[in-house]
Amino acid sequence: MIPTAFDYVKVRSVDEALAALAEHGEDAKLLAGGHSLLPIMKLRLAIPTVLIDIGGIPELSYVRVEGDEVAVGAGTRLFEIERDEVVRAEAPLLSHVAGRVGDPQVRHRATLGGTVAHSDPASDVPTGLLALGGSVVVQGPAGRRSIPVTACWTGFFETDVAEDEMVIEVRVPRTGSSGWGYEKFTRRENDWAIVAAAAVEGRVALANMAGTVVRATATEEALARGASVAEAAALADQGTSPSSDMHADAEYRRHLARLLTRRALETAAAA
């Protein structure tokens, strides 16, 4: 299967990309690694008329330590984040979740910015980022702004990034010495998560328990009160709204959320 026809614009800088976005408006889509966009275009679930290829913008690919944060360029490919020594040392959960996406070929193409902008509630990287905290830096005609990760993913495949903006960078706190855990439940190794739980420094994020990745706030509050891991994890599905589909029904997802949260917290505590 093939996408519908579109015009293709290759840009070499953020400024060029933003200019192209402004010119083509809502018919345009940014193409980075293309591993979220092209599959749905092939199935004709997305039919943009212009693709703006930002895959070759050198200024978007980097990993830097800045103060108490690690800044990662949106164009950085997932396999680079998985292997990067700085990310591994300063934000090991981010390195880990980058390495859990898809398969090696997918990670060779897919970018950090792409997975953030796609806002799939079952996605590994947003789940990890939501647990880590930090922010997503976007740029538009009005300049740059920073979106806290807690406000970034607003709905099923929807984000706070405006149509004339693009993701530039992700900033996460340096959590190198803290224990962390990531539990991804799939039937096959390279499937999307049926449910996943990420835990670091008392923060817990869940994949596929709502229209977006979500924080397990009841669990976090219980931990803050000094509850045991088991007690806190038993609250993990509170406030979530999991769907029922052919992979799992809502009741089982709730069970998994509690189980995986407990295991992720136990792993984090054991480090």
Binding site: P39, L43, R187, R188, E189, N190, D191, M246
Partner: peptide
Amino acid sequence: LEEVLYDEDGNPTTSTLADYPFVSAT
């Protein structure tokens, strides 16, 4: 793993290899 599924209206829900859990090496 594997099962071809239909919804009650007879729509197949496993019609791509992303949905049909073809066994892999792992």
